[in-house]
Design a protein around this nucleic acid. Structure first.
Lengths: 245, 245
DNA sequence: GCAAAAGTGTTCGTCTTACACCCATGA
DNA sequence: TCATGGGTGTAAGACGAACACTTTTGC
């Protein structure tokens, strides 16, 4: 039996987990809410899907609104929809969560509903120093897990780097997101061997000190073959680290 | 600027891609629609999320309604939300798609909106002999891709098997879902070595002909370590097979 | 014994890991 | 020339693919 109330109409939002690497640490873009509920609390950027608007389009629009960055260049992927009836005190609102990775970029403006917007260390959210509004803490954690595993099988890590970039910069992305130290020489071999991941520009960049490093651009491959796997031990270490926090 | 029409309220449904292995082929549970739109066409089982209902609960409810199977025992995972404004001719309806894998089971009843329900070979959908309503064809394809990769990293393949099961039965799941032939001896070594995947019952089952096979139950591990990877060549072969169809 | 399917052993080649070592630069 | 990070070489061991071979059953 289906009654009319079975087909409840609900509001739909998109929320964005946008990561970047800054000062050798993983950061996430957060806003400070400018109105109730959760006024003054940190939250993920996001907003209502408009009438007739695609979900992906809404996500890209919100990304531009919150950061001023053209989403056309960014990796943007839906990773889960959250629909707990109690997740928003205003009523039934389900949200489609997106993951985006990008190079460190300036925050161009505050969001429409936001008092402020800025990059915050992911650690601060994981250890409770920053307590996010709604269920955004859980969404962030799942986005982080997704990002970690995406690094294994796809070439998205390179989207964290502003072109052209060095292999050391790319390695730092892996180290920061995974929370591990990687062997520089073996890392280099793997990523240069993976077809379509990196394109050498031929140019070099001389650091403050040390030998100049070769510069690369992103290749056209989206899937990383062969994958760059975290060892089982490494994943276990990562999980316990998370649990201890 | 946000106007009231920016917060369009939309209907939300869940749709289920339910796979099973039957007669050495992969099958998917489909219904035949009993009313417009797409009356008489095949579609994925699913329905409206009710007021105050969790998305996962709605998926489990629909699964029981369509199949009579207790979803409590089944692996059920949300894999993507589809929100194209044009995807439903009746108006804006977004749908949260779930993936479920289970042993071959009888279809207990037709769904409330369905004229009939039954298992259909996945091949028939992929090659166009069955043309699904709405965007369900695309949803099915993505669900299949998800199922294929889930087999690599998780122990869900065992949920296809009715307990107790033999290693040959488990191997057949992999072969059917991946569309590949696997080496029986290497497969056995891998799955028995993976901790928490299989628990030997000690009992044996004698086939019509041949040596009796050891019987197993599912272990408590959800993640498969080490993973059981399709080789790059195998994946390529699979993709071309799909493209040629 | 034979067919068929379960299960074990072995070989060979590739990939991973760890680490030694050389290279190119600025100070 | 020294310190620093870039980059190459290489040996030991782990892992995977392929396949020969043994075991256990019904007929």
């Amino acid at each position: 039996m289906r009654h009319s109330h079975d087909r409840e109409r609900v509001a739909v939002t998109v929320d964005l987990v946008i990561f970047t690497v800054r000062d050798e640490r993983l950061h996430v873009l957060l806003i400070e809410r400018g109105k109730e509920p959760f006024e003054g609390r940190h939250a993920l950027p996001g907003g209502y899907v408009r009438a007739g608007e695609h979900l992906d389009a809404a996500a890209r629009r919100e990304l531009v609104e919150e950061t001023g960055v053209d989403a056309g260049q960014m990796h943007l992927e839906q990773f889960r929809t959250y629909g707990d009836p109690e997740r928003d005190p205003r009523g039934r609102v389900i949200t489609v969560a997106y993951l985006a990775l990008g190079p460190d970029m300036p925050v161009a403006r505050a969001g429409t509903d936001a008092r402020a917007a800025g990059w915050e260390p992911v650690d601060a959210v994981l250890d409770g120093r920053i307590d996010l509004a709604f269920d955004h803490g859980a969404i962030l954690r799942e986005g982080l897990e997704r990002a970690r595993s995406q690094l294994e099988y796809t070439t998205v890590a390179a989207t964290f780097c502003r072109e052209p970039f060095t292999i050391a910069e790319l390695r730092q992305v892996y180290e920061v997101v995974w929370g591990l130290k990687l062997d520089a020489s073996n890392f280099r071999r793997k990523v240069t061997k993976a077809r379509g991941f990196l394109v050498a520009t031929g140019a070099h960049r001389t650091p403050d000190i040390g030998r100049p490093a070769g510069l690369y651009r992103r290749g056209d491959a989206r899937l990383l073959t062969p994958p760059l796997l975290r060892s089982g031990d490494a994943v276990a270490a990562q999980l316990t680290t998370l649990a201890l926090r």
